[in-house]
């Protein structure tokens, strides 16, 4: 660990190792399209500790992927702009750093694995070269050494016959193997935080199981913090320690994995859990959440979930923005009736 401390200080001046690994505090992101400002993330906050897995759950358009791009500093600007909040790594606000520092942070401290491995890899270079490039650019290692490290990494992520496969091109790998290559690239510089943005959505279930097992195992070995961005609550239940549920650009509930699934305090979380079909239960009619996710350009007044909410008070919820209610230790929900929902009284 001592070795690691030195690295952190080198590449991230002012790092306080007693501070939490990664804190996202009231992060705000908006898109500016044709003169209109469309909020994508409207105050997201969560904390990630070493060796823990935080699942960011939400449907399409909830702002979960934009949040991860803002943390990584890979948001497309324009049209996306970070308009507020802090992203603190070891207590250092990354949003205030210059591009030079941010580039060092990417890969060295925070790395990301995308959903679509095929488009995230350059088809013109061999995978070994693409992994090795990271060493050459960031660490200045020689070509031969870089290749050696690439083989080690491919081996680590469970690619059989890594010595030969290192010279292959992305299209020569199957979907699951490509995702392993992506993970190898993300791990190359030994990051402290790994963001996995829907890492298994494009894969078959049996391959998904392999990849999730691999991610979990690597995280345990390296004591990394893992942010898992997904819409699949089944995967979340399998691997996460904490959950942040996002809806319309806000984190509407933050809880431990057990609380989130067993005693949700936000009506949306509760409805979502009831709406998922399960293999181990039968029931003909599925419970559904009525209506549609809101359009970020014209969000409903008050609580954005109120038009679809089963627990909403027609007056209060449509006019007042809900408070961040703490229903138990480390369990908060953005709802006027969080306490009632938590106690199952509403």
């Amino acid at each position: 660990m001592a070795e690691n401390v030195r690295v952190v200080g080198d590449t991230l001046p002012g790092a306080d190792l007693n501070a939490p690994l990664l804190e996202v505090d009231d992060l705000r992101v908006e898109f500016r399209v044709r003169g209109k400002r469309i909020p994508a993330v409207r105050g997201a906050s969560f904390t990630l500790e070493r060796g823990r897995t935080l699942a960011v759950v939400g449907e399409s358009g909830s702002g979960k992927s934009v949040t991860s791009q803002a943390i990584m500093g890979i948001l497309d600007t324009p049209p996306g702009y970070v308009t507020g909040g802090e992203v603190r790594l070891h207590g250092v606000d990354l949003l205030k750093q210059g591009e030079e520092t941010r580039r060092t942070v990417r890969g060295n401290h925070i790395a990301i694995v995308f959903q679509d491995a095929l488009s995230a890899l350059n088809p013109l270079w061999s995978v070994g070269f693409q992994i090795g490039e990271l060493y050459r650019v960031h660490r200045g290692t020689s070509r031969a050494d870089a290749r050696k490290r690439a083989i080690e990494l491919l081996d680590l992520v469970g690619i059989p016959d890594a010595k030969n496969r290192v010279g292959h091109y992305p299209h020569q790998f199957s979907g699951g193997m490509r995702q392993r290559v992506m993970i190898a690239m993300a791990l190359a510089l030994d990051p402290e935080v790994l963001i996995a943005d829907e890492p298994t959505t494009a894969l078959d279930v049996t391959v998904q199981a392999q990849i999730m097992r691999l991610l979990k195992q690597i995280q345990d070995d390296r004591h990394m913090g893992l942010i898992l961005i997904t819409h699949d609550l089944g995967v979340v239940a399998d691997v996460a320690d904490e959950v942040a549920v996002m809806y319309a650009g806000e984190v509407v509930e933050r809880a431990s994995i057990h609380d989130a699934f067993k005693r949700p305090a936000h009506p949306y979380t509760k409805a979502l859990l009831r709406a998922i079909p399960r293999v181990d239960t039968v029931g003909r009619e599925l419970e559904v959440i009525p209506g549609l996710p809101p359009n970020p350009a014209s969000l409903p007044s008050g609580c954005p979930f109120h038009p679809r909410c089963w627990a909403a008070d027609p007056e209060k919820c449509s006019t007042e923005a809900p408070p961040y209610e703490e229903v138990a230790e480390d369990h908060r929900a953005l709802c006027h009736f969080a306490k009632e929902v938590y106690r199952d009284e509403r």
Binding site: G291, L292, N295, S298
Partner: peptide, 9 residues
């Protein structure tokens, strides 16, 4: 059946 409205009115 809930009446659904398109996001852009």
């Amino acid at each position: 059946m809930t009446e659904l409205t398109a996001p852009t009115a």
